[in-house]
Design a protein around this nucleic acid. Structure first.
Lengths: 158, 158
DNA sequence: TACGATAGTCAACATGGTTGACGAAATAGT
DNA sequence: ACTATTTCGTCAACCATGTTGACTATCGTA
């Protein structure tokens, strides 16, 4: 292994990426809790995002998130229980039950976007705009294939 | 929000970090499977790393990983079942059961370190050594508090 | 009309996490 | 030395997330 630099071991890179992700998500949810959304969990924000403004169905949501329709249905159940999603019958197809973001869910989604912008701005203040942009561009170069794959608990845990 | 750049929305940053992490971990386990360790899951490598060469106990492992001693014990059970860890009685303290990495576990750990070095080298070839080093340094600056916190499934999923 | 495809649900299970309770063993205090 | 406290491991019950398989109801079509 003539290429490996002992001062920069390869195993540090994934831990740093995970730590960066975790820092942003933890800060987001600390702020969300302050702004009236303490029940939102990391996974929930991404699910709300995947449902989108037009609504969707459990089966389609599962396809978007890369999980089974059953798992998507169970996750929707939980978000319905805390008031972020609602189910309505599809008048054009009695098999389908449309999943829609409630006003409360839309509020959480809107605040999340604002908070993420503020958090990025904090990184820019610390690291400089060029370094943050470089990080984004470089990650996009090496990891674009895994954009928006959010089956994290099952993927990571096994 | 006069500071937010619409071309670089804040919400992209966590997704890129997660995608980068996921890319490295997926590539690691694809290669590990090729080299004779198909049972190793993403979580397992970090647990083996946390056990370390000297061994530890379930309670101490839980403290290192930021999870309960019960959760650590269950994870150890599963890694014992697939042959990566073993439990031995502590001759100096009949309450303790030392958890040790088996030769097979040590082999997996050793290969993981080599593979991570090779994966980092691939990033260096694509992005250049300065950019990769900058990414590491910057992440260390903004996220060092979350170094080696690996309670990912529970943290992310809720 | 009858059949195949699709949507949703139910059931059973695996994995990873939690809290609470408890026995056994070590340690500290009187 | 005896007792009280702490510590370690485990058991049990439960939650969240995921899986696969089976099933019903409905839609669309040959």
């Amino acid at each position: 292994m003539a290429t490996a630099d002992p001062a920069r071991p390869g195993f540090a890179l994934p831990l740093l990426l995970l730590a960066g992700f975790r820092t942003l998500i933890d800060d987001l949810h600390a702020e969300l809790a302050r702004e009236g959304h303490p029940e939102l969990r990391p996974l929930h924000g991404f699910v709300l995002q995947a449902v989108g403004a037009d609504g969707t169905t459990a089966t389609e949501l599962g396809q978007r998130l890369g999980i089974s329709k059953q798992a998507a249905g169970k996750t929707v159940d939980r978000l319905v229980a805390v008031g972020y999603l609602e189910r309505v019958d599809d008048p054009t197809d009695a098999r389908r039950r449309l999943v829609r973001v409630t006003p409360r869910g839309a509020d959480g989604l809107h605040r999340s976007a604002e908070i993420f912008d503020r958090l990025r701005e904090r990184w820019v203040e610390t690291l400089g705009p060029k370094r943050v942009a470089a990080m984004e561009d470089d990650l996009h170069t090496v990891a674009s294939a895994n954009w928006f794959r959010l089956d994290v608990p099952g993927w990571f845990g096994g």
